[in-house]
């Protein structure tokens, strides 16, 4: 079976399609292929390409039916592990939920930094707030639930976990994720003075670099 047949195209109004894929990896590959084709000028007009956890929304499509037929013939190559730019995020592993996460992981609090920073992550999609990226890359045995009670204020720069995702809060908001650390200077996460205001755009690879004095 080719990748193309794994696409499930769902209608989303008169000018959009929601393309569903079997898993996060194939969603990332399909998203990368869309960006490649758009850069090459071979993608029909699409105003917004919005990845989700298992989907990519194609919005602002003049003829969704025609695009849906074309997608059925696509051959989507798997995404190479080293495909895309890498962003390094420095972290002090000092979050208020560090001990709780360590307990869920069955390790000591002083081992969370080494564990969390040993993986390379990828921005699967954005949402919740401008510049808030949902990072995949933690293996399933390290997935943790959200907190039972959300915090009314999570500070900007908080490094957080929920389900399969890691994230860094670009600004202070309410939030229910488990906080394990702090990015000392979170300003670059969302910087309107740059042409690309978001540091963590979908597809970007991310490495967390522990800072001294954390543990």
């Amino acid at each position: 079976m080719t990748e193309g047949r794994l696409l499930q195209v769902r209608p989303a109004g008169r000018h959009a399609l929601l393309v569903q894929l079997p898993d996060a990896e194939r969603t990332a590959a399909f998203h990368a292929e869309l960006l490649r084709r758009r850069a090459a000028g071979t993608l029909p007009p699409v105003a917004e390409i919005v990845p989700g956890a298992r989907t990519v929304l194609l919005d602002g499509v003049p003829d969704p039916g025609e695009l849906a037929r074309r997608l059925a013939d696509w051959d989507v190559p798997p995404r190479a592990a080293d495909d895309g730019g890498v962003v390094e995020i420095h972290v002090r592993y000092d979050g208020p939920d560090l001990a709780g996460v360590a307990a869920l992981w069955g390790i000591g609090p002083d081992e969370v930094a080494a564990t969390h920073s040993s993986y390379t992550y990828r921005v699967a999609f954005c949402g919740f707030a401008p510049g808030f990226g949902y990072l995949t890359g933690l293996p399933p045995h390290l997935h943790v639930p959200r907190r039972d009670t959300p915090r009314t204020r999570v500070p900007a720069g908080a490094v957080a976990l929920a389900g399969p995702y890691s994230a860094v809060y670009p600004r202070a908001t309410p939030g229910g994720w488990q906080l394990i650390g702090t990015m000392p200077d979170p300003a670059p996460l969302w910087d309107l003075t740059r042409d690309e205001p978001a540091l963590l755009t979908p597809g970007t690879r991310v490495r967390f670099v522990p800072e001294g004095g954390a543990t």
């Binding site: 109004g13 917004e48 989700g52 929304l57």
Partner: peptide, 10 residues
Amino acid sequence: LPSEGMVLGA
């Protein structure tokens, strides 16, 4: 439902 893109008018 895993998070997914939302359109105007959804």
